[in-house]
Every structure is written in C-alpha cells, then in structure tokens.
Amino acid sequence: MGSDSDKKMLSFEEASKHNKTKDCWLIMEGKVYDVTPFMDDHPGGDEVLLSATGKDATNDFEDVGHSDSAREMLDKYYIGNIDMATVPKKRAYVAPQQAAYNPDKTPEFVIKILQFLVPLLILGLAFAVRHFTKEK
C-alpha cells in the first residue's frame, strides 16, 4: 500500500455526499474510508455506519472500543485524506436516514419474543371473546 501522501485530498463536502448504504464513506482522524463493501458485514449493522457519515466519526469509532483487527481492516477501505480546511467548525444537524426494513437483519431474540407473544395474545383474545360473549 502506498503512503498517505500518495492518496488524494478530498473535501468534506465531497466525502459527506457518500451517505447511503450502497455508497458510504467515513471520515476518521483526517482520513476518508469507503466502507461500502463492509456495510452488510458490520456487526453493529449498516445503520451505525450511516449515522457516522457527514461528520468526523473518530469519536463514534473510539467510543465503541473496536478491536485491533477492526482497526487493521480500515487500511483496505482507506481512499484518501480529508482537507481539514473544508471541515465546518460547527456541524449542521443532519437527520438520520431511515433504513428500509430488512427482515434478514431482524435480531433473533426479537423473532423468538414474537414467536412466544403472538400465541399468548391470540389465546388471551380468544378467552376475552369467550368470557364476554357467554350468555348470562
């Protein structure tokens, strides 16, 4: 891999445009990473990565306490440096993008809870209907 100086200089505005599932760039410690190929594999889900676009995501990355292997993975996604002169002093609020529902990413515990609760709700409803429709 070439040195940092071999990589291109990117503006904050340019990097911030890449804020979708199929086109996601992150800015961390003055570097820009195209994490698009990692979106489906990120253990925290693609929503976490999308919420870190359009800003310096260094604190987001550090707060999670990523492993050394996660830090090493960044190298393959590195595409350039951010031109610090283009980074706004105060970040404008950007509303989080609503991710489309993906049933393949539904946590297993939610499915197990629903498998348990739905029959109980049906039984409860059947009991209530029977109880309140009995002739007195």
Rank of each mutant, 00 (worst) to 15 (best):
G44T: 05
S3Q: 11
T58G: 03
T106P: 01
L125V: 08
K89P: 00
R71N: 15
L125Q: 07
L10A: 02
Y101G: 00
D23A: 12
F132S: 05
G65K: 07
K55Q: 12
S67R: 09
S69V: 13
F132L: 09
D104T: 11
K8A: 11
A126D: 03
N59M: 12
T133Y: 05
G30K: 08
L120R: 11
D41L: 11
I79P: 00
T53A: 01
D6Q: 12
Q98D: 13
N19P: 01
I122F: 07
S69I: 14
L114C: 09
S67F: 10
E62F: 06
Y78F: 13
S51R: 15
A95P: 00
Y78E: 04
A57P: 04
G2L: 10
E135G: 08
V94M: 13
C24P: 02
A100M: 11
V118S: 02
Y77W: 08
V64T: 09
V32P: 02
N81E: 12
E13S: 12
L121T: 02
A70T: 14
P96K: 07
L114V: 06
M39E: 05
S11E: 02
S11F: 03
E14Q: 12
I82N: 02
K112M: 09
V35N: 02
G2H: 09
L117A: 13
G2Y: 05
T21L: 12
L123I: 14
R71Q: 10
D56I: 07
R91D: 10
R91N: 11
V118G: 00
D104E: 15
D4T: 08
L10K: 01
I79R: 02
T21S: 11
M28E: 05
P96I: 08
I82L: 15
I82K: 01
M28W: 04
V110G: 00
A126R: 05
A15E: 04
G124K: 06
T106Y: 01
T36E: 05
S11P: 04
F116K: 12
D40T: 07
G80Y: 05
G65S: 09
D4V: 10
F38L: 13
K89Q: 14
F12P: 10
A95T: 10
A128R: 09
P43G: 08
R71F: 14
M9P: 01
E13G: 02
G30T: 10
A95H: 11
Q98K: 15
D4L: 15
A92E: 15
H131V: 01
E108Y: 05
K136A: 09
N19Y: 02
W25A: 01
F38A: 11
A95K: 15
T53W: 00
L10Y: 15
V35S: 04
P96T: 07
V64L: 14
Y93V: 11
P96H: 06
G80Q: 06
P96V: 06
E108V: 12
L49I: 03
D60T: 09
F116Y: 12
F61D: 07
R91M: 15
E47S: 11
M73N: 10
N59A: 15
Q97D: 11
D4Y: 08
D75Q: 13
G44M: 08
K22G: 04
L26D: 07
S67E: 12
E29R: 14
G80R: 04
D63M: 12
H66R: 06
A100G: 08
S69N: 14
L120P: 01
